[in-house]
Amino acid sequence: MSGDNIFTGLVEEHQGDARWAFGTGFTDALAGVDTTLPAGVDGADLALYCQMLGDDALVQAQRLVQWVTDAPELEEEVALANIALDLLGQARLLLARAGQADGTGRDEDAFAYRRAAHEFRNVRLTEAPRGDFAHAVVTLLVLSGQRLALFGRLADSTDPVLAAIAAKGVNELAYHREYAVSWALRLGDGTPYSHERMVEAVADVWPLTGELFATHPVEARLAAQGAAVDPATVRDEVHAVLTRVFTEATLAAPAPFPEGTVAGRDGRHTPALAPLLDELQKVAREHPEATW
């Protein structure tokens, strides 16, 4: 390899270089997938559902990015960035699908950058302030556990695009959960201090978990048609997984998930979301005519 070649390569035309850094292959996960809406499925419903799952991923990724240059160890910087990157990839596909489904043709950026907080459909746990590393671990454990259970079933969705996104996402989410479990064990069964931090994190996170399993009418309608998964149906499975992890981590068995009501899925958020979106959207909004 010579320095000259690397440099002259720059001023030549790029030959469809898809890869800008490790993990940015950006291969089309939906290549060859039929994008027509399944018969009988309401496009507006499907678009909202895609936003729910897409916003969960986007907002969670935005929180995880806050660990970059702030993690306890370099390996954790890499791992958390990697998880954020996976979620960002899922969000992009889901938001693009939302724009197809509602007939507006809006792209992923139109959803990410040009909606107000009340138009976001994420559950509120994803927007909760970052907290310490124990909070990050518990939050990731719960969110990845729920999402993995959803995506496992969604791989059979009657919507071929959702099915493809879920099939790809399952492997990513299995890793996210495994990472969270490995740290739940270390922190829970590490030092008395780390154990205490885990207990506090669980206490802080738990009140927000009920919403993850509350069924929105859109989810109910689409689930009845086989296009979506009713989150209430994964509640027991997710709880069982957490119970095993908590026991192994020497933590008290988790309380049942509280009875949740739909909130974020209807655009009702905590005060934490607006500043998160301000940061996400500020450059794009300052240059409304620009492309990047």
């Binding site: 993990g23 935005q62 990015v65 970059v68 969000a91 940061e279 996400l280 620009a290 492309t291």
Partner: peptide, 25 residues
Amino acid sequence: IASAPSLRRKAILLAKVQDEAGHGL
């Protein structure tokens, strides 16, 4: 990263910064 003005740019930048942590390692 948090304010990258498109999701594609955000992903590229996040991956790049992640690479740098890897280089450090």
